[in-house]
């Protein structure tokens, strides 16, 4: 009975939502013109990167903070379940992973660089890096993480700290993350490089910390 009522309610909600979506949007919601008119001062050529790192840089700063927070909470929660069966490792898979890992790093650097003028950027590059780490872990080449070492901690926080330092350094410009147009391109590349490393490590950490095995808690 409860399921039936809930299903009916969800269906009614969806119908209501679609009805609202079919109403034409007011013209004032369109932000494309605002973005296009300011592209020249953004330091990059791709509109999505310009919005992410320049016009709405504040969102991205908070985003990397949220990611870091999630990782810290996962570390704080701790894991002590008995879960994994011994992993059978296929040597062919291992060899392929060894070959793929360097290529994946090249792809990540390319994505980071391409973000300035075509789809790409720090998030995609970081996700690709994290995928490489997960691949290596699943093929048994990379052990799961225990408590992060000092170097790893710096790597995890580098993106956030670089972003924060740039934001603090530019406070004299009047607004948060208001880059001077001449240096905007360089600053965005610097921030994105830091973000790529940190995002890759954090996303990989979300997986590698969660796959910690019991008993080897250092």
């Amino acid at each position: 009975m409860k399921r039936f009522v809930m299903g009916l309610g969800a269906l009614a909600f969806a119908a209501l939502l679609i009805g609202a979506l079919l109403e034409p949007l007011p013209v004032s919601v369109d932000l494309r013109a605002a973005v296009t008119n300011n592209m020249a001062s953004s330091g990059v050529e791709h509109p999505v990167t310009a919005v992410l790192l320049n016009f709405r840089g504040y969102d991205t700063l908070l985003e990397i903070a949220v990611l870091l927070l999630a990782l810290i909470v996962i570390l704080a929660v701790g894991i002590d379940t008995a879960s994994d069966q011994p992993r059978t490792v296929n040597p062919i898979l291992q060899t392929l992973a060894r070959v793929a890992a360097p290529l994946v790093i090249v792809v990540a650097v390319y994505l980071l660089w391409a973000g300035a003028f075509r789809p790409g950027g720090a998030f995609q590059a970081g996700a690709v890096l994290a995928a490489a780490a997960v691949l290596l872990h699943l093929t048994g080449l990379l052990p799961s993480w225990q408590v992060p070492t000092r170097t790893l901690r710096w790597g995890l926080t580098a993106g956030f700290l670089i972003f924060l330092a740039v934001a603090a350094g530019l406070l004299s410009q009047g607004a948060l993350l208001h880059y001077p147009p001449a240096q905007a391109g360089m600053l965005i590349l610097l921030i994105e490089a830091g973000l790529t490393i940190s995002l890759g490590l954090i996303l990989a950490g979300l997986f590698l910390l969660l796959s910690r095995e019991p008993g080897d808690d250092a």
Binding site: D30, L31, R32, V35, P47, V48, A50, V51, L52, F55, R56, D59
Partner: peptide, 8 residues
């Protein structure tokens, strides 16, 4: 597409 919602 509108780049602002895409970035969001």
């Amino acid at each position: 597409p509108d780049p602002v919602p895409q970035a969001m």
